[in-house]
Design a binder for these strands. Structure first.
Lengths: 231, 231
DNA sequence: CGTGACCTTGATGTTAGTCAACGAATGTGG
DNA sequence: CCACATTCGTTGACTAACATCAAGGTCACG
């Protein structure tokens, strides 16, 4: 679950944290921007996005979180939310009070480091994405997103990296890539015509991953999957 | 220096950390992408940028660091560098060994939280920037950058927020905004014609900040300047 | 008096946004 | 079972933003 090595007892301490389980329908705002949050959110089922909203209402999704992700652990040390969180699908989340997390962190330096590390990995993914938004074409960004999500779904044990269920609308993908829904639609068609993408409902298949990775210039190092020890 | 409240003795412990002071000329890579770093970098003088590099050599700057910033504290918990760091001007930095930082973090939970918090603030700035790259025009992004840097220079006690020394080339700003140098040049001219920017060498003056902030949709909340206590 | 780094300008091509409309699938209430 | 609305994907015509290519201009520096 977390991207660090912990002892059994430390793992148990995290799992034993008090939490409120919440079910939400798709397209609901779980955390509204501009407030102060009192809990962190663990995704139990579904797909959850962190976003930033502009004055005109347009959204830029800055992170996608799948089953098992602790999506706003950073709010433990910085509870002020400039961002918001929305459910992209019907979802189930566990809300863990900051108070409990802070107590745990004080009692165990190893867990503090593991939490810190987890937020840094999120930040590493975000940096890679910022670079994609600034310097790549929509087609390359879409390819990159597909490569990343495939790998993350596989790592989470949900599917293979080249054939996965990704229940997201084209408008939502557009909010990730920073393009309009119309342009995303055309970009997806371009990948389909190149024989790099086959979709069927929410099922995504990537028939030629090596070529897709080349277009995306995808190097999975930034996801930090090898989980080195903390010290 | 750090964006958290610490006791005197904690502050002294940080300042007493062993470090190697290094001087670098402008336009040098301080940390090369794709390695494993063994120290974190504190900016003593100058301007330092974190960047991500594409296969074609193009760079996207993902963070700017001014005097007093600890620019890669995150590498304490994740030493693998997908990114690089370059000096934008002649600079002086202090390189603090990760080993010493990890020892300090283990001995003091408050410092661990302060360090964690610092990396989360960087991440908050990055999220705002990703949103700008995805959803705003070059003009709005430039306005946003100017508002942010003005405020940060002021907070660091270097100048006022509407008249500051920002020793950076147009090509480097272009690498921040994710545009070409040619287009950045034209974007700056547009701000000048609107009476929103006056430059003289590396001196930037913002004659009409309220209007500039409106164009930028600048809300400084994401910089988390009010420094709430850690717990 | 070159030379190189940086800024500026013009012409032209490409990428992506905007506006508007339509079709397919799904759900809902009568 | 049918009319209706809603959401989502798709398409076409047109426009705006930005990239690319190429060339000069300025200034500091050796």
């Amino acid at each position: 679950m977390l991207r660090s090595r912990l002892t059994k007892s430390e793992q148990e301490a995290i799992l034993a944290l008090p939490a409120q389980e919440v079910r939400t329908a798709a397209h609901r705002d779980i955390v509204r921007p501009g407030h102060c949050s009192t809990f962190s959110t663990l995704v139990v089922d579904g797909l959850v996005a962190r976003f930033d909203q502009l004055a005109n209402g347009h959204r830029q999704i800055t992170a996608l979180h799948i089953v098992g992700d602790f999506c706003d652990l950073h709010s433990v040390v910085v509870p002020e939310t400039g961002w918001g969180m929305e459910s992209l699908t019907d979802s189930v989340v566990r809300q863990v009070p900051h108070e409990a997390l802070r107590d745990l962190v004080k009692s165990s330096p190893a867990i503090a480091l593991a939490f810190w590390r987890d937020t840094v990995v999120d930040s590493s993914v975000l940096a890679k994405w910022a670079s994609a938004l600034g310097r790549r074409s929509a087609k390359s960004r879409l390819a990159h997103l597909l490569c990343e999500m495939g790998l993350r779904f596989e790592q989470a044990g949900l599917s293979t990296d080249s054939d996965f269920d990704f229940p997201i609308t084209q408008s939502q993908i557009a909010d990730v890539l920073g393009v309009t829904p119309v342009h995303l639609n055309r970009t997806m068609q371009a990948l389909r015509q190149d024989g790099l993408l086959v979709t069927n409902g929410s099922r995504f298949r990537l028939p030629d991953q090596p070529r897709l990775c080349r277009i995306a210039q995808f190097d999975p190092a930034y996801l930090l999957l090898h989980k080195p020890p903390n010290d």
